[in-house]
Amino acid sequence: MERESPLSPEGADPLLSLEGVGRRYGFRGPWVLRGVDLAVTPGALIRVEGANGTGKSTLLRVLAGIDAPTEGRIVGRPRTAYVPERFPAALPFTAAEYLTHLGAVHGLDRPAAVVAADEWLERFGAAEYARTPMAQLSKGSSQKVAVAQALLADPELLVLDEAWTGLDAEAREELERVVVERTAAGSAVVFVDHDPRRLAGVPDATYAVVGGALELGAGKGTGAPAAAVTGPCVLVEARGRRGTRVPPEAGELAIAVEETGSGAHRFTVPEPQSDALLRALLGARPPWHVVSVGQADDPDLDDALAALEVESS
């Protein structure tokens, strides 16, 4: 089993670490998790895999602080938000009222919570349901409320247990973009999803829960860029002031950066991360000028990716 975390860029202090964590239910129950070590650093995106009933959800609940480990310990407790797989919303509130309450629980003051509730419902295409009683929401709409709840107060650690389940296609993509945004902003995200294409290529690390232990995913998504390219990519051409360096955030998001002229750069970025890259470029000081954005399908790029794959293997 893997004891070393690959997620310690420049010795960043982990937001939260699990040390020899084990969890079982009842005094004589079987161990659901055993001997789990995991460090979650700021900005880390971690995918957890495993067959049904292997303890993925338990691991996520321990990370979210909803479950205490039976043995071992947890160091650190960042501001945490959790999204469950199903959110049966038998609550006597409208969506906006519930989100305002939860925003306040997450530490926002009331006016900020009201604004954040509206913004996040709008972002997930559920603004029209803001005044609808939760009990009347469809399954997908209540899942949107559950997702919005977690994002209200910019959590430092976002734990998503199959949060995409039940969302419509647009909301699923939006949630992928939000995850990338959050990690680019320095939050850590840990997620489980049954769809292997979910955020394909983006996670910094993939772990599998096998027999209660945590194994670092073999060969995929371990931070090597070439291995990460499995989904569609976007090409972004942008120009910075002469002599400026590529903003580090943008450099991290892109899987390939190529200088094409004085100050002009071509970034290749996995599709879910393209918005975050543009935000990083436009938000840099001084800001970069975005010349063009397009699908990455030209032969040059394919060659470049092929070269990268050869390099890494």
Binding site: I66, A81, A89, L91, V105
Partner: peptide, 13 residues
């Protein structure tokens, strides 16, 4: 609170 909502509140607070 239904258990799912309780988990959300629990993670936050």
């Amino acid at each position: 609170e239904p258990p799912a909502a309780r988990s959300c509140t629990g993670a936050a607070a």
